[in-house]
Computed example of a mutant assay.
Amino acid sequence: MTAHYQALAETLKKRIEVISDTELRDSNPQQQLRQLQQASESIQAWHSAHRGNIPSQLNHFLQQSSLSKALDYLESEGLI
């Protein structure tokens, strides 16, 4: 399952990076929205596929779209 968690962590990091990219937001907001949508869809797809096999706290963070908390959880629990 660690490889699956690593894939989730990478997608969470990517979405957080895109949100923080003010240069992209200012120069090409449509591209930023596309990247955010793509990352969000990947996170949702991962969550749907693994929902029954993940810790309840991680499930909660993903349901609430608490992406930084989800990433922190993966790191603090040694899952990635």
Rank of each mutant, 00 (worst) to 15 (best):
R51M: 07
G78Q: 02
E17Y: 08
A70M: 02
Q30T: 15
R51V: 08
H50W: 07
G52D: 05
N59H: 13
E75V: 15
Q31G: 06
D72H: 10
L62K: 01
T2H: 13
Q30V: 10
W46A: 01
Q30A: 10
Y73V: 08
E77M: 11
L74K: 04
D26Q: 09
E17R: 09
H50Q: 08
S42L: 08
L62V: 00
I80W: 05
A9L: 04
F61H: 04
L33W: 10
K13A: 09
L33C: 09
Q38I: 08
T22F: 14
S68I: 14
P29D: 02
M1W: 14
G52W: 06
A70Q: 02
R34C: 04
H50G: 02
S76L: 11
R34I: 08
L36R: 01
H4L: 15
S48P: 13
S76A: 13
L58K: 03
L74H: 03
H60C: 12
S56T: 13
A3L: 14
Q64T: 08
M1N: 15
E75R: 13
A70C: 05
R51L: 06
H47P: 06
A7L: 09
S27T: 14
Q31S: 12
R15T: 03
S68K: 14
L74E: 03
Y5D: 02
G78A: 06
L71C: 04
Q6I: 10
N59C: 10
E41I: 07
A9K: 02
E77S: 15
L71N: 03
L67N: 08
E75I: 15
L8G: 00
H4M: 09
I80M: 08
G52P: 02
S40V: 01
V18L: 02
I43S: 03
S27L: 13
S56Q: 12
A7G: 07
A39K: 00
Q38F: 08
T11Y: 03
M1C: 11
S66A: 13
M1T: 12
D26E: 15
Q35L: 08
S65I: 07
H47C: 09
L24G: 00
K69W: 10
L74F: 00
A45P: 06
N28P: 05
Q32N: 06
Q32C: 00
L79E: 06
A7S: 09
L74V: 01
E10I: 12
L71E: 01
Q44C: 13
Q37P: 10
Q64F: 03
A9I: 00
A7E: 07
Q6R: 13
Q6V: 14
L71K: 02
L36Q: 00
L24N: 00
R51H: 11
S40C: 12
R51E: 07
Q57P: 06
A45I: 13
L24M: 04
G52I: 08
L71D: 00
E75P: 07
A3P: 07
Q30F: 07
E23A: 14
D21S: 01
S76E: 12
L33R: 10
Q37N: 12
